[in-house]
């Protein structure tokens, strides 16, 4: 029950981070490539799923960006989803989460 307020707070923090650390346009190209090719290894180049679940806007509907950001950064222990922190910054993972929610990848 505490989850949503916490998430909302995290969201705010994330937004602040985003405002201060939006990836450069050069880096955004790299991130998009990583999302398609490397995330695509498990989730499919079209994000319709593979060993990992589908990441289409429909399948992610209702999930806040910061929730996805947390999954990207910390992975899902007990599953094949690895943590990407160390490779991706907070701002970069949030930006990727928003790309997924907007359906702007894998097409």
């Amino acid at each position: 029950m505490m989850r949503w307020p916490v998430l909302a707070t995290l969201s705010l923090c994330a937004l602040t981070t985003l405002a201060s650390g939006m990836p450069s346009s050069e880096r955004r190209v790299e991130l998009d490539y990583l999302l398609t090719q490397d995330c695509g290894s498990c989730h499919g180049l079209t994000m319709k799923g593979g060993l990992g679940p589908a990441l289409t806007p429909e399948s992610l509907a209702g999930k806040p960006a910061v929730y996805l950001q947390t999954t990207i950064l910390h992975g899902r222990p007990g599953t094949a989803m690895p943590p990407w922190r160390g490779i991706l910054t907070d701002a970069e993972s949030l930006w990727l989460a928003e790309r997924l929610l907007a359906g702007e990848v894998g097409r």
């Binding site: 290894s41 060993l51 690895p82 990407w84």
Partner: peptide
């Protein structure tokens, strides 16, 4: 040997 596995980025 019980060591922490590294994150696996590709199966």
């Amino acid at each position: 040997r019980g060591e922490q596995k590294l994150p696996v980025y590709k199966m």
